[in-house]
Design a protein around this nucleic acid. Structure first.
Lengths: 216, 216
DNA sequence: GCACGAACGTGACTTTTGTCACATTTTTCT
DNA sequence: AGAAAAATGTGACAAAAGTCACGTTCGTGC
C-alpha cells in the first residue's frame, strides 16, 4: 500500500501536469518500479520488449549499435518523458533496435503494453502524451542527423559537451575520452586531439576522467 | 459530387484496408486534392503547415535543409502513407523543419488539422494509422542515421541507388550526379568519381542523366 | 613502495572526402 | 549551324578523420 501511494506520488510529480488523476491511479496500480545506478544498461539491442518505461527521475541515454559494435548516441530521455517508440516495438513484437543506458542513477516506472493500448482508447491525455513523445524523439533524432551530416567532428564534440552540461546541470563532465569517442562514434585518439585543441582555445579544462567547460 | 466519389475511391484504394468506411466518408468530405508533377516541391523548410497530406499515389522525398543550403535525404513516403510529423508541427504551429519533394507525378489528399485531431478521438483505426506512421518514419530515420554514421560514401551511394530502384520499380535511375550529390550531401565531383568506380566494377552503367543498375 | 592497468599525449602516416581548375561532351535555344 | 548551358571526366591538391605505435601519467591494490 505504501508502495502504491509512493508510485502515485512519483507519477503525479513527474507527469501529473499532463495526465488526469484517474489515469494516474490506473497507472499506479500496474506500474513496476525500477531503479538504476549510473551506467546501467536498461535495454540492449535485440532485447524483447515486454514493458514500456516512463522515466521519473534521472536521465537515460539512447544509442544505436550495429553488428560490428559501432555505437552512436541518438538522444537523451529525461524525467517525465518516455520512449514511445518502444511501445510500437512492443506491440509489433519487434526486438529493440536501440540501447538504453542510465547516465545517472534513475528511477523508472514500467508498464505493460496491453494497458498502454487500453489507455490509448480511454484517455485523450494519454494519446497526447504518446504522440508528443514520438514527436519529441523525432525532432531530437533530426537534430542528431543534422549534427552527423552537417557538422565537423570538433563542432559535434563541443555540442556534445554543452548538451551534457545542460543535461546534468553541472560544468563538470565526468567522462573518459573513450566514452565520448563511443558516443560520437569516433576514436579515442581523435577525441583527445580535439579536446586538446579546445583546451588550447580556453574553452575547456582537461582532467583525468573529467572535463570542465569554462565558457558556456 | 463526382469529385467526392472520386476522393472516396482514391482513399478506399490507398488506405481502405486500414481505415473504416465511416472514417473514409468523413475524410472524403474534407479532403482537398493536390496533384504534383515530378520534382515539384510540396513543402519548403519554414513553411507554415496548415493541412496534412496523405500520399495516394506516387512517391515523396523528405529531406533536411540547413541555413547554408546543405541538404540531406531523410526518407521517402509512398502511396497509402502520411507524414504524421507534420500533424504535430501543425498542432504546435511550428514551421516545417523539412522539405518535401515529389519524385514523380503524385496524388495527395490534404486534410485540415482540426479534423485530424477529431478523428484521433473518434476512430481507433485512425490512431493506429498515425502512430504507425510515426513509427515507420522513426525507423527510416534510424536507418538514415546508420548510413551516415557507419557507412562510407561509396556504400551509401550504392544503397541510395538500390533504394531508388526498389522505390521506382525500374533499374534506370533518372538522376544527374549533382542531384545524387545533393541527396547524399556530398559534392558532384566525388559522386562522379565513385560512380565511375562502380561502373568499373560492373555494378552500374553511366549514361547522361541516367544510371542503370546492372546487378541487384 | 611497486607493479599493474586505465587514461591520456603525441608524432607519423593513411584513408576518405572535399575542393579547384579545366577539359570534353551533349543538349537546348536561337 | 553556332552559341550557350548543362552534364560529366579528370588530375592535382588540401583537409578531416582514422590508425598505429609508443610514451607518460595517475591511481589502486598488494
Amino acid at each position: 500500500m505504501q508502495n502504491l501511494l509512493n508510485k502515485k506520488q512519483l507519477l503525479t510529480d513527474s507527469v501529473g501536469y499532463l495526465l488526469e488523476e484517474e489515469l494516474i491511479n490506473e497507472m499506479s496500480e500496474v506500474a513496476k518500479l525500477r531503479e538504476t545506478v549510473a551506467d546501467e544498461i536498461i535495454i540492449h539491442v535485440g532485447d524483447e520488449l515486454l514493458m514500456i518505461p516512463i522515466v521519473i527521475s534521472g536521465s537515460i541515454k539512447v544509442s544505436r549499435e550495429d553488428v560490428e559494435g559501432n555505437e552512436l548516441l541518438l538522444y537523451y530521455i529525461e524525467g517525465g518523458d518516455t520512449c514511445a517508440m518502444t511501445l510500437q516495438c512492443c506491440v509489433r513484437k519487434v526486438d529493440s533496435q536501440i540501447k538504453a543506458t542510465a547516465i545517472e542513477s534513475s528511477v523508472l516506472l514500467m508498464f505493460p503494453v496491453e494497458k498502454m493500448e487500453e489507455w490509448m482508447d480511454k484517455y485523450k491525455s494519454w494519446r497526447n502524451f504518446i504522440i508528443s513523445s514520438y514527436h519529441s524523439r523525432m525532432m531530437e533524432l533530426m537534430e542528431t542527423v543534422d549534427a552527423i551530416a552537417f557538422m565537423r567532428l570538433d563542432e559535434r564534440l563541443l555540442k556534445y559537451l554543452t548538451d551534457q552540461v545542460k543535461l546534468m546541470g553541472s560544468l563538470e563532465i565526468l567522462h573518459t575520452h573513450q566514452q565520448i569517442a563511443d558516443d560520437l562514434h569516433s576514436s579515442r585518439v581523435v577525441i583527445s586531439r580535439l579536446l586538446k585543441q579546445l583546451e588550447n582555445k580556453g574553452v575547456i579544462e582537461i582532467h583525468r576522467n573529467k572535463i570542465i567547460l569554462k565558457q558556456f
